[in-house]
């Protein structure tokens, strides 16, 4: 790191700060500005609207379910990919990354095809009176789909760099799989896990494309917060749209701050015993 800086360096820093301001900060300021444009009472009315609250609850539910399932999957798959060598390992790794390469809209389409009228499953589901598509289950499924690589992605490099010897040491001392995981592995990866959870949560609560395809946009039933924003916006109810958006901004900023705190903790942890 250079201590003494010349004009060129300051110019680059200023340019970066300017881009940051225009590209990232301004949109955030605008959301808050528009949300409060017609006063605090209109704002409060917009966010306490029953449809908004229902959308918020659905968003939270989908996020919690997606994060919980993906945490389990992330731990299992990262363990599998880093503790063992077997044929097809690279293939499993590639499959886990696949959702990153697929447009959310296309992901949504997968589920439409799987559960829709053209699917062989459709008569069975109708027989059993199970509504998947254009209902809550599809919203949750789509959310899980778009977020499932996040935790594995965070865990694999950390577990790879730690190697297997601590787990092997535990094995020579007679520890079972669960004991090894709980006492040896988990403490080592907790920050990476938390980091992955935060990233997955951020993506889950904001998912739009995939959910938009499978939800059917039924107000009060299958609307998540982002979808609710779209409806309000398309009805030219801008203030309400931005008011609801401000909720998501707050959630995003909180998650971002948490993310940075976690990163900081993890870095600090590397220098100390804990």
């Amino acid at each position: 790191m250079r201590k003494e800086k010349d004009i060129g360096s300051w110019l680059l820093i200023a340019l970066a700060a300017l881009f940051l301001l225009i590209l990232l900060v301004l949109p955030l300021v605008l959301v808050v500005h528009e949300a409060l444009a017609r006063g605090i009472r209109v704002y409060l009315a917009a966010i306490s609207d029953p449809f908004a609250i229902k959308a918020l609850l659905l968003t939270l539910m989908a996020t919690v379910i997606a994060v919980a399932l993906n945490t389990l999957f992330g731990l299992a798959s990262a363990w599998l990919l880093t503790k063992y060598d077997f044929h097809g390992k690279a293939l499993i790794g590639a499959l886990i990354d696949l959702p990153f390469a697929i447009s959310p809209v296309v992901a949504g389409l997968f589920f439409v095809v799987l559960f829709g009228r053209m699917s062989p499953l459709f008569p069975l589901l109708r027989e059993a009176h199970v509504q998947v598509l254009f209902a809550v289950p599809a919203v949750v499924l789509a959310t899980v789909f778009v977020t499932f690589p996040f935790i594995t992605r965070e865990l694999v490099p950390v577990m790879e760099s730690r190697g297997r010897s601590e787990e092997e040491a535990a094995a020579t001392l007679g520890a079972s799989g669960w004991q090894t995981f709980w006492h040896v592995t988990l403490p080592n990866i907790r920050w990476a896990l938390l980091y992955g959870v935060i990233l997955a949560a951020a993506r889950a609560m904001g998912e739009f494309g995939a959910v938009s395809v499978v939800s059917g946009h039924i107000r009060g039933r299958t609307n998540t917060l982002p979808l609710h924003i779209e409806i309000l916006y398309n009805e030219y109810n801008f203030t309400a749209a931005f008011a609801v958006a401000s909720l998501l901004v707050v959630m995003a900023v909180v998650l971002l701050a948490a993310r940075n705190a976690v990163e900081w903790q993890a870095k600090r942890g590397m220098h100390h015993g804990d």
Binding site: R2, L20, L24, R203, G206, Y233, R259
Partner: peptide
Amino acid sequence: YDFPGKRLLDGLLDLPFALPTAVAGIA
């Protein structure tokens, strides 16, 4: 470089990953 607000810049850089796309869209 080291400069005041560096950590803020670093942290904000990930905002597009955290901000729901619909919010970014209307903003």
